[in-house]
Design a protein around this nucleic acid. Structure first.
Lengths: 341, 341
DNA sequence: TTGTACGCGTTATCAA
DNA sequence: TTGATAACGCGTACAA
């Protein structure tokens, strides 16, 4: 027997499809207890589930939200998703998750797929430097929230949720100077055109300008530990005074620890070490590592919350401006002290 | 202007809806270059996207797969998802991801939602001890793959993908005995009715029977580090000979390291320490920790691959048996040696 | 090579 | 309190 439809229920329960539909949607107001029970029984017996796709045809919302993260194997992304999901699920929204792998091409393809799914809203951790890559979304009047990274030329109508990268790095730069560090080496490994790492570098550079310390950003690209070790060794050997190395992205800390071991550097004696986002394991390494830590789950919840607002307004006003609720949201970065500097 | 439909394209391009439909579906066979180009141009200009929900009405597949993981904040789940996604996306399937939070109630609700979405297939990391919780899925003839855990009474028609938990723990138990350990304390923290942890305990118990060593499983439930520390201390102080403590689930290792610090135990001197699934950070702790490591991404790919087979057969044979491809798949657990035992 | 017309399962409108 | 029926956007059998 094929899947039950609303018509099957109606026939079996000796009512009209209208009544069944009302029942499904909880409009018990105009329904006798008797019919209600009869329909209920039939629905259970035939294991009827209303089909989302058929419902979508008659309604202007799908109750599905699309999410595109840059790298799902990074813990940042999974906690971000958890925050999003925690907020959206109780509100009655399902989530389609996609992984762009830090690739512009995959991202673009995925946006198309999600638009085809008629998602009610979209949360993206973007890869493209220029916002034009996302124009199809706004053209579509689909509510959009950007997270973690900002692309250039982003319309004021689009929301943005990021951590306080610049400020936290500025503060850390000042603190390092206060502790007598004269050189700061922020290491980044950027997979895409844009990332939160660049705002972090800016923060350090500002601190350098204010304190007179040397800030020398280093982009390690796809290079392995051997290359990183060589470059670091060469650079540091030319520097006067105390040097601190900053891992601007969580996974890079793994490599740095190996590199330090290879060079036989220990911290904080030979060199200072600070990292972003270790996801709470590094406190078991030696006496712990000084950290700047984002709260990805909070970021996710903020995204979802803002998106719900946008979608709510879109639903209320119909043809109105779905972007009334938009804003730029910045969440704090925690500083976890440890004797690695 | 409202979203473009196939009819809009047809009108603008001066062709019939049939032609547009053929174009969308790549049936260029019966189409002149001229019309093809004209349609192409119009589609681009109006930014037309076919609506998945309308297509679904006319077809018996949605090209959407549902995935329910037990705890998305556990790295196991995110890598599992990555494996699934990596396999399904190129095959043209979108993925709805849900997080059951190790809760039976949420899981049951989520299954209903996914069935309403008419997913073509389902991958679940199950919470319920008894398979009856999933009967609605098989009643629906929706292809299903269970991963990581097995529920009782699972029909032969349902696939299962798990890591080689029992065997790997048996081998480790034997190895521990060989190294002179006389007591093995596997610690588990189970959030749901079933988990992979129980097969692991079985493996150790089998080893205990063979070697004569004492195996004393301990369930720490929701207790905090203080409780764990007290219980461990009390237990170990009563034991003769060398003792090894096993963290049967990755996150528990965090707690154990703190507990060890609190009790001032060091490994391997005072006690042996082994853990499952640290996700590669623990090698920086002291001289590293002995590990049994699953490959969640490989598990995910195996799930997706099997599901694709099931769905392929379902699609081919129409009313035929979609479960022909079903099997029990077991993947190896890697053993990463380190001087913590 | 292109077009017409119907039906998929549901909800909303209107009528009874 | 209930029911009949027209849409929603698309794919396809059949007609031209």
């Amino acid at each position: 027997m094929a899947k039950a439809t609303i018509a099957d229920i109606a026939r079996e329960a000796n009512v009209s499809v209208t009544t069944v539909s009302r029942f499904i949607n909880g409009n018990y107001g105009k329904m006798s207890e008797a019919t209600k029970n009869r329909v209920q029984e039939t629905v259970d017996r035939l294991q009827y589930h209303p089909r989302a796709s058929a419902q979508k045809m008659r309604q202007d919302h799908t109750h599905v939200v699309g999410v595109i993260v840059a790298d799902i194997s990074n813990v940042f992304s999974s906690l971000l998703f958890k925050g999003i999901y925690t907020e959206l699920q109780p509100a009655g929204y399902d989530v389609m998750l996609m992984n762009s792998n830090n690739s512009l091409g995959e991202e673009s393809d995925e946006i198309g797929r999600l638009l085809s799914q008629e998602v009610d809203g979209l949360i993206i951790q973007p890869n493209a430097r220029d916002f034009s890559a996302y124009a199809s979304i706004t053209d579509n009047r689909t509510p959009l929230v950007m997270v973690d990274r900002r692309s250039e030329g982003q319309p004021a109508t689009v929301s943005s949720v990021t951590a306080d990268n610049r400020e936290s790095c500025l503060r850390l730069g000042l603190e390092l100077a206060r502790r007598g560090y004269e050189n700061i080496l922020p290491l980044s490994r950027t997979g895409s055109q844009i990332s939160a790492q660049s705002s972090r570098v800016e923060g350090f550079q500002e601190a350098g300008e204010r304190t007179g310390s040397l800030v020398m950003p280093m982009e390690v690209g796809d290079h392995g530990q051997e290359w990183i070790g060589k470059e670091l060794d060469r650079t540091v050997s030319h520097l006067k005074g105390k040097t601190a190395i900053i891992s601007l992205i969580g996974p890079l800390l793994f490599d740095l620890l190996d590199v330090f071991k290879g060079l036989d550097w220990s911290f904080p004696e030979d060199i200072g070490l600070v990292s972003f986002d270790d996801w709470s394991w590094s406190r078991y390494v030696g006496d712990g590592i000084y950290l700047l830590q984002q709260d990805p789950q909070a970021l996710g919840q903020a995204c979802a919350h803002n998106l719900l607002e946008q979608m709510g307004i879109a639903a209320e006003t119909g043809e109105g401006d779905p972007y009334g609720a938009s804003r730029q949201i910045t969440l704090p970065v925690a500083c976890i002290e440890a004797p690695s500097i």
